[in-house]
């Protein structure tokens, strides 16, 4: 009885035992992989930089992981195997260095400032930061807890304005979603986000944006298996050609 059951179970048991080996096989090829954790706002530029990097390094694959900087930090803190970390703000990079997980001192590689994003036809006729204080306007900001929201609060304070948003979103993407759908009349996002969104939104510049400049730091991650390649990737980002990719996308120089 037991013997028959064992025989029936054997295929399943074999699968269970083999599964880890099969998974390991999948990852075991000649290619070397550098894993880069980067803030979501860097998506387009880092995809470009990654393909440049691969072109210069035979047999090397750059694996890009994009997400909110705080998500990425907590993943690295929980053991994710990242070789490079590029943060959208210094606060999240500080979390990494507080745990001594950096492979080197973080270096600033880009800056970003805010811009007003409105639907292409600008239904509420927004032309300045002051226009956002109009209570009739459906204003969408990032929540003060996330970097873009803190920046929005910063420019409002610098301009002596009190903004009363109709929604405080989790991320820039959520803000842009509300603007492209026409649900919101205006939102505050980064210059690069407006550029990346193309024709779906229109950007309105305002002088107060210079008061809050967001700095992007980058570093290699400690205990990286590919520390040399990771170092080279960081150097590429900081190089003239890397900086050109970033400035083309609307980022400022550090």
């Amino acid at each position: 009885m037991l013997g028959r059951m064992t025989r029936r179970l054997l295929p399943y048991l074999a699968l269970l035992l083999l599964a880890p080996a099969l998974v390991a096989c999948g990852g075991d090829d000649d290619d070397t992989t550098v894993t880069v954790y980067a803030a979501a706002s860097l998506k387009k530029t880092f995809e470009q930089l990654a393909s440049d990097f691969e072109a210069d390094h035979d047999g090397v694959t750059v694996e890009l992981v994009f997400g909110g900087s705080s998500d990425l930090v907590s993943q690295i803190q929980n053991g994710a195997e990242a070789d490079v970390f590029a943060s959208a703000d210094t606060a999240n990079m500080d979390k990494l260095t507080a745990d001594d997980l950096q492979g080197q001192d973080p270096q600033d590689f880009a800056t970003n400032t805010l811009q007003i994003a409105v639907p292409p036809d600008n239904p509420a006729d927004v032309s300045s930061l002051q226009d956002l204080a109009d209570p009739a306007l459906d204003l969408v900001l990032c929540a003060p807890d996330v970097p873009c929201g803190a920046a929005a609060q910063g420019v409002a304070e610098a301009a002596g304005l009190t903004l009363d948003p109709d929604s405080e979103e989790q991320s820039v993407t959520d803000v842009l979603g509300k603007i492209t759908s026409g649900q919101g009349d205006a939102g505050l996002v980064y210059v690069t986000d407006v550029l990346a969104a193309g024709d779906d939104v229109m950007g309105v510049e305002f002088p107060e944006s210079a008061d809050v400049v967001n700095t992007y730091p980058i570093t290699t991650v400690e205990d990286s298996d590919e520390s040399d390649l990771a170092q080279e990737f960081v150097e590429l980002v900081l190089s003239d050609s890397g900086q050109k990719v970033l400035t083309d996308a609307g980022f400022g120089a550090p």
């Binding site: 969408v140 948003p165 109709d166 929604s167 405080e168 979103e169 989790q170 959520d174 509300k178």
Partner: peptide
């Protein structure tokens, strides 16, 4: 989060 937004006490 996609449809209603996120505002304390409202959404």
């Amino acid at each position: 989060v996609t449809f209603a937004g996120s505002k304390e006490g409202v959404t």
